[in-house]
Amino acid sequence: MSSRVEQIRERLQGALAPLHLEIIDESASHAGHAGAMAGGGHFHATIVSAAFDGKSLVQRHQMVYSALGDMMHNEIHAFSMKALTPSEHPTTGNL
């Protein structure tokens, strides 16, 4: 288990109280690329949160980046994401 994934999970949980949160460490598939060699990881996340209700895509991603804060400087080189509201997420929305 990567501790960076745990750190990301903690920050997102604290800021967005997601109903569903999936984080995948894709760093291995980018090994050797310039950003990866500098030590930053590549991650992909699916985040379902009521906090995204009424927000544009840009605003949602800005909320996530702001929650990740200084991790974006070094630990994270790329953070690709799907930021969904509960009603946009088929499984969570039906709960």
Binding site: V58, S66, M72, A78
Partner: peptide, 15 residues
């Protein structure tokens, strides 16, 4: 308020 690249702007707004 966006930490990574690329960033696309259309008519002055961050997309």
């Amino acid at each position: 308020h966006w930490p990574t690249f690329p960033q696309l702007f259309v008519r002055g707004e961050l997309v």
